[in-house]
Design a protein around this nucleic acid. Structure first.
Lengths: 181, 181
DNA sequence: TGAAATCATTTTAAACCTAAAATAATTTCG
DNA sequence: CGAAATTATTTTAGGTTTAAAATGATTTCA
């Protein structure tokens, strides 16, 4: 299971995409990460529904608005949450009905809809955010602060690697990996 | 940003759920993990669609069947993939149409439907799985084997902590955390 | 045997997501 | 000015997911 710390230098320096077979470790890592994310996400969905009768997309959208003092446009929110504009429109529709969000055309650019939390929306979000933070802490309760810090740092590296790989591909992968295929 | 390695023993031993405020580190860790998972998942979805004209749920389902020599029931698959039975039924319907999966009642228990990959399904899955493994390796390409091993190990701890917290809650949380609320 | 309970699956309804097309407002530039 | 291009949003259609209710098959046990 453990990666030997005496791995040959060749292995350490060879990009994974250049070795032909054996990428099982990366695959196992991804499957484990996926398991963790899925468990957390579905637990949070359950608790939001049971305790606040709301959904994760609604919570996430309100969280974005709460961070912005001047409000956000539909497009900004959709980029931030990595979902489509149409989806933001639909989720906002529900929040408008419940009086949690306010939508109005921008002063300078009347194409743009500016979204803000209402006073009621801010109160509701504050209550949910506090509980949410507690739930996450509970879920990670068996980990010490050192482990949490280490994970945060390592996942920073993962994030950078992902951005690298994804942008490479979206252009024309002008790297060695591209030549071999 | 870094957690000092000389953190007082009290901190290391205090359960996160027993401290009142400050759970920001856990929250930041979760948000970063979610970012990584979402990036990977949507990249894999895109590539499966572009290169194989299929979807992630189909791929995941075929992966389960491929691992089992004797076939699996709808219920087993739904547990494994953490989705509903109804969902499995629907995804299987598509795979049946394409001749990738076979469905037949079990010999001993005629309530149960046994799912297996067809010969064509096995061939198709083999091709996809090879590419999939390569994609994952590309996405993690900037990480060394030591980092991958470390992450895998730490996420094992996360997984254990999640199971702990979730099962505690589903019974009656007979822990100290329960008393305080 | 046969009624009740249990287990597995299917059906249904509602919410959500995406992609593509349609609509609306603004900017650019002749 | 005003047509064309751009930008932002909404609408539409198709597909996926979940939860809950309904259905079907088997087991238990009096």
């Amino acid at each position: 299971m453990e990666i030997p710390s005496t791995a040959p230098l060749l292995d350490r320096e060879t990009k994974a995409s250049e070795r032909p077979g054996d990428h099982k470790d990366e695959l196992r890592l991804w499957l484990r990460m996926l398991t963790c994310s899925t468990l957390i996400e579905s637990e949070i969905r359950t608790r939001l529904r049971e305790e606040f009768k709301t959904t994760l997309p609604r919570f996430d959208l309100m969280a974005q608005l709460e961070k912005s003092t001047t409000g956000m446009t539909v497009g900004e929110v959709s980029q931030r949450l990595m979902v489509s504009n149409g989806n933001v429109t639909a989720v906002v529709a529900g929040l408008l009905t419940d009086g949690l969000v306010d939508k109005r055309p921008a002063a300078q650019d009347r194409r743009v809809q500016v979204l803000t939390l209402t006073a009621q929306g801010r109160r509701a979000f504050k209550a949910m955010a506090e509980r949410h933070e507690g739930w996450i802490a509970e879920l990670f309760a068996d980990l010490g602060p050192a482990e949490i810090g280490q994970l945060f740092r390592l996942l920073g590296g993962v994030k950078a690697s992902l951005h690298q790989a994804i942008s490479n591909r979206q252009n024309g992968t002008p790297t060695a990996a591209g030549e071999t295929e």
